[in-house]
Design a protein around this nucleic acid. Structure first.
Lengths: 249, 249
DNA sequence: CGATATCTTGATTATGCTCAACGACAGTGG
DNA sequence: CCACTGTCGTTGAGCATAATCAAGATATCG
C-alpha cells in the first residue's frame, strides 16, 4: 500500500466507520494515533523493547503475534491485518506477551498508551466501539480455542481459512471474493491451530480432494464455501456488532 | 456466601479495588450494577434468552461458559468466579456465544448493557480498568490457546490448575494457599483444555506420581508448586496490571 | 544461477481417544 | 435406614489421529 502524503487515508478510521459513524471530532482523535509511522521488513520481529509503552496501528501488511515454548515449538496467537491495533493486550500488563512478527513487509503507526486516555476521556462512543472490538477479538480467540481443542486437523485448517476470508471480506472487500492470498507459511498456519506443517499440508490436500477449496502458491480459492461452512458449522463473527447500546456522539 | 442486607459487600468493587483506588462516585456507579440478583442451581444453564441484553456480576459460586460442537463434544471457554462480569463478550454481538452453566449454586446480579454507558460516559478511569481487565482475559485465553495447541496432556492439566490457583489467590487469598477446592468434574476440566475425562484422570495420576500435587475429592493440593511452575514455564497473569497510564479520578 | 526456504510424500511412532467394566459416592424415595 | 439410581472417577485394551523423521521436489530471493 502506498502512503498518502495528505494523510487522507486512515485504515483505522476506515475500519471503525464500518461499524458506526465517526464524528469529525472523533476522527481527529483517531488520526492522532497515526501521526508517526515505521516500516518493517517481512519476517522481521517487531522489537517491543524499542517501543515499550507503545501500541501500533497497522497501516499495511500482515503481522502475527506468537510465543515460543521451546526451541522447536511455538504458538501463533493472532493475525494482524491493516486497520488493526496491535498491542492492546499488552496494555494491561507490564511485560509484553509474546512477539510480533511481520509476515509481509508492513507499515505501522506507533503511539503511546497515554493516547488511549484521550479517547477514554473525550469520546465515550469511540470507547464503547474499541471496547466492543476488543470483545470481538475475544470471541475470535474462543472460536480458535474451540477448533484447536475439539476439531480434526482438516476441519481446523478449513475453519482457519474461512475465518481469514470473513475478516478480509469486511476490510478489503474488493480483493476478496471466494479467494485471497495468504502470506503465511504452512508452518505458521500450523502454529496458529496446533498442527505441524506436515499436517497442514495433508489437510489442504484432503480439502482439495474433497472439492472444497484449492490452495496453491499461497492463494486460497474456495470452491464450495457454503457447503464447507455448513460442514464445520462456521459462524462469521466479523459481520456485525451490536451498537445500539452505545452512548450518543 | 451470605448476602449482606446492607449491601455492604460488593464482590465487584472489592475485585476492582485490588487494582486501583475506587472513588465514592465510582463506587456508586458500580453498585448500580448489583441492584438486582437471581439465584441459580448447580448444573443449571443460565438461560440467556430470559436475560437477553443482560450482563451479570457473579456474587457467589463458580460458573463456566461453553459451546457444544455436537452431541458428544463441547469446549469450555472460560471459568467465572465471584466478582467476574459474565457476558461482556456478548456485548459486541447480537447473538450470544455459547451457554453459561453454574458449576455450583450461584448468585448473579443481572444488569442491562446500557449501564455500561454510564460507566463509559462518567468514569474514564473505571473504563480504563474494565478495558484492561478485558485485555487480561484475552491474555488468559491466549495462554489457554498455547497449552491446548502445544502442550502435553499432563502439562495442560498442571497449567490449568495453576491458573485457577493464581486467580483464586488474588480474590480469595484466605481460602487458598497451595490448595483449593475445584468444583469441576474431570469431564469439564477436559472440555476446557481439549482432553477427555480419561486423559485428565490419567494426567492427575501422573502428576501425583511425580510428586507435584494431589487431587482428591475435588480438592487440589500442591506439593511442589514452584518446581511445577518452572517445569511448565507458568506465568501468573493476574498478579498485577499496568495502571500508570490510566486517566486520573 | 545458486542458496535457502517451503512444500510434498511416505514410513514409523507416540499420544491421547474410544470403548468398556468396575468401584465409590451422593441423592432419592420407599 | 437402606436399596436404588445415576454421576463421577479409575483402569485397561485396542485404535486412530497426528507427530516425527527423512528424502525429494518446488519455489523464492538475492
Amino acid at each position: 500500500m502506498v502512503m498518502n502524503s495528505e494523510q487522507d487515508e486512515s485504515c483505522l478510521v476506515c475500519r471503525l466507520r464500518y461499524y458506526i459513524d465517526i464524528s469529525d471530532r472523533d476522527e481527529r482523535l483517531l488520526r492522532k494515533l497515526e501521526e508517526n509511522q515505521i516500516s518493517i521488513a517481512a519476517k522481521a520481529d517487531l522489537n517491543a523493547q524499542d517501543n515499550i509503552d507503545s501500541l501500533f496501528v497497522v497501516k499495511s501488511g500482515w503481522l502475527y503475534s506468537y510465543v515460543d515454548l521451546d526451541e522447536t515449538s511455538r504458538q501463533v496467537l493472532r493475525i494482524h491485518y491493516p486497520g488493526d491495533v496491535v498491542g492492546l493486550t499488552d496494555v494491561a500488563m507490564q511485560e509484553s506477551f509474546g512477539t510480533v512478527k511481520a509476515a509481509t513487509k508492513a507499515v505501522l503507526c506507533p503511539f503511546p498508551k497515554k493516547h488511549l486516555d484521550d479517547i477514554f476521556t473525550q469520546s465515550p462512543r469511540l470507547t464503547a466501539l474499541i471496547f466492543s472490538l476488543g470483545m470481538l477479538e475475544q470471541v475470535v480467540l474462543m472460536d480458535r480455542l474451540k477448533i484447536i481443542g475439539r476439531m480434526s486437523a482438516v476441519d481446523r485448517v478449513a475453519h482457519f481459512l474461512l475465518e481469514i476470508h470473513a475478516r478480509l471480506k469486511i476490510h478489503a472487500p474488493k480483493d476478496v471474493d471466494g479467494e485471497f492470498d495468504i502470506p503465511l507459511t504452512q508452518e505458521a498456519i500450523g502454529d496458529a491451530i496446533g498442527l505441524t506443517n506436515v499436517s497442514v499440508s495433508n489437510a489442504l490436500t484432503q480439502l482439495e480432494f474433497d472439492g472444497y477449496l484449492r490452495c496453491n502458491k499461497r492463494r486460497v480459492t474456495f470452491r464450495e464455501m457454503e457447503k464447507l461452512k455448513e460442514k464445520i458449522n462456521f459462524k462469521d463473527r466479523y459481520f456485525k456488532i451490536d451498537t445500539k447500546w452505545f452512548p450518543d456522539a
